[in-house]
Write a protein that binds this DNA or RNA. Sequence first.
DNA 1: TCGGACTGTAACGCAACCGAAACGTTTTCG
DNA 2: CGAAAACGTTTCGGTTGCGTTACAGTCCGA
Lengths: 116, 116
Amino acid sequence: MAITMRPSQALRLWQQVVLSEIRDDAPDLTMRQMAILLTIYLEPPPHTVRGLAARLGVTKPVITRALDTMGGLKLVARHRDENDRRNVLVRRTVEGALYVERFGDAIIARALDLPI
Amino acid sequence: MAITMRPSQALRLWQQVVLSEIRDDAPDLTMRQMAILLTIYLEPPPHTVRGLAARLGVTKPVITRALDTMGGLKLVARHRDENDRRNVLVRRTVEGALYVERFGDAIIARALDLPI
DNA sequence: TCGGACTGTAACGCAACCGAAACGTTTTCG
DNA sequence: CGAAAACGTTTCGGTTGCGTTACAGTCCGA
């Protein structure tokens, strides 16, 4: 069953989720960072810098910097690919999995609160 | 009927919408700017700087600067309140309404595409 | 084996954002 | 009236993100 909603519901859902993200103390990720994080956690590995850049339609340095930032937050981890040492493999972390899980729950909670 | 979805659906929906926003050429708004824009368009006027700041839990300069940026993009407009000239009233624009409308449609489209 | 192709990163310059504090204008009220 | 309060903006110093470009390490084929 596909998810269906009206425009006003979709917009209000988005507003509520964004508002809750702004309020809590967690450092807000940029839209690009969020896209990278979700891609890493929703799509099957392995994830490389190049692959992520192509997937998102951004340049590689954008990925590198986002990994710097999110690595500092322990949301993702970098490891050199031992089979092809040119590659960097981006791996999930416990903290990142928890972050993504909480975020999904937040969306669902806001969706349930939507006016009919 | 409340909107219900599973965590994986919610996360994938968010990912798809964010991805589509990153890809298109339109300048991406920050999370705060998006929250302000949606608040202006979803909640009844009048909207003041102070009111928006309180609603979002941010400082007034954050609102002022976001209005500068989004005003430049014609997404919102500022007008002095003639009844109390200390206030600035934030008004909607045709361009902003169109932007918000398109954004809502994008969410719905991505929701329909979600895997079951 | 060695030059080219490929990977990710660093460096540069620019722009935008942030919080805190100071500011000018307008209103309120003692 | 005149001082205090309220409103939005500006300024300050600092941080962060972006795109472009240039670079160092690694792999591979002639």
